[in-house]
Write a protein that binds this DNA or RNA. Structure first.
Lengths: 135, 135, 135, 135
DNA sequence: GTGGTCTAGACCACC
DNA sequence: GTGGTCTAGACCACG
């Protein structure tokens, strides 16, 4: 499971962490019953304040993704994977929708937007089997 | 020229205003030498505080998009359109890139992402002729 | 009599006009009993709003430099030259003092400051008999 | 590090604060990696509103002098000292130039100006050894 | 009427 | 505790 946060994003760090844990559970990298990394460990790995991680965990608990195991850490709940797959879709879709809404409102032509999207799409996963751009 | 802001967005309102003016100038809706709406007028139209609009104008001045006409308002600079077309591209691209980066990090499959994007793309401008020919 | 205003100065334009009329009277370019340029003429010459000039004249009247001649314009008062020579000295000295106080507070070395001053002094009146800088 | 602002100056308070922080960094009183005084502390010390200080900090960030440390304060950037030495020179020079331009435009004789400058120069740092050798 | 500055104080995100 | 954003409203300089 890879975590990374971007300090310069307008999205709060704790929210980024929430998303990433959700993504991890949705993808099966974190399975029900398994412990997620501790607050301290994750804080150190991400170079953020432990309180920030703690806050993310609090939110994850609220969402029913993880549950505290007294004294041992936080564990992924049985319903976690199902919840997270739905939430993942929602998160990603909302962000994409917002970006495209803005693009449209910018009065860029649909073709320009399509071009930008394709550009970035191939940049983002350049490791895939070659050029995604249609001929 | 249509302006609208979303108070619940993580993007500060003053930044939304900055973007929208840039879009307006880039699109030619606001031309060099013409006055942009006044602080007070725009504040009233957007239902935000005049100070918030003033802050956006300050940033637009810093970016060389508009210049104050003492006592008369803010005027689009001669270089405005050129600057703004570049800045528009940057703004839109950055937002799309961030959304796609997140999508990739969510471990959704590239095909799922492509599908989401196409979905939203056609939603955003449903008036276009369908799904945009793709091989 | 040369007038010029700098729109980008933090000093209000009307105050710049006040200073320049005072300078003109102090230098003898405007003599007691002579009419100073009309609001409209000066406004046109300086490319500023007539109201701005009117405000400057109001201030000059308050300072006893000029007096209105019903229907014919503003004339320099008998005491004008004397008043203005004192005021000129005060204005210039105050501005120089403020600049130097700031320079000292900037922690630039006295030699650096002296160098800057000499630099600018020779720039400002390059038309004088050669280099003012001491060997 | 000493800060002080003059509320009656035509120079906005927030700009005075910007200059003073730049002077402090240029002089080495504020070093890279060190925290500058907090918004609230500085506001209290200068008897101005915290928002005014915040605005100055925003400008300093834009100039690459300081960078925010989320939740901990504002830190002087690595490039700060270099940037600031240049900016200090620019600030001081601009102010001196403006003062001298005005002096010249006042039609005071060059010798009178020189005398005024020397007067004030020795007043400003009277603790130095006299009138500064001039041929 | 315009924008610019300042004060005042709220709330938020983060540490 | 920190800075960031926003609202609110005052006053000023300028046209």
């Amino acid at each position: 499971m890879l975590f990374s946060v971007q300090a310069d994003s307008p999205i709060p760090i704790y929210e980024q962490i929430v998303s990433q844990v959700i993504f991890g559970v949705a993808a099966g990298a974190l399975e029900p019953g398994s412990l997620i990394p501790s607050v301290r460990e994750l804080a150190q790995r991400l170079l953020v304040h432990p309180n920030t991680v703690a806050r993310a965990f609090q939110e994850l608990e609220r969402r029913g993704v993880v549950a505290p195991l007294r004294g041992r850490g936080m564990e992924v709940t049985p319903d976690g994977p199902t919840n997270c797959r739905a939430q993942r879709q929602d998160i990603v879709r909302a962000r994409i929708r917002a970006a495209l809404r803005e693009a449209v409102s910018s009065a860029l032509s649909p073709d320009d937007i399509r071009k930008l999207v394709d550009d970035e799409l191939s940049r983002c996963n350049g490791q895939r089997r070659g050029k995604e751009k249609r001929s």
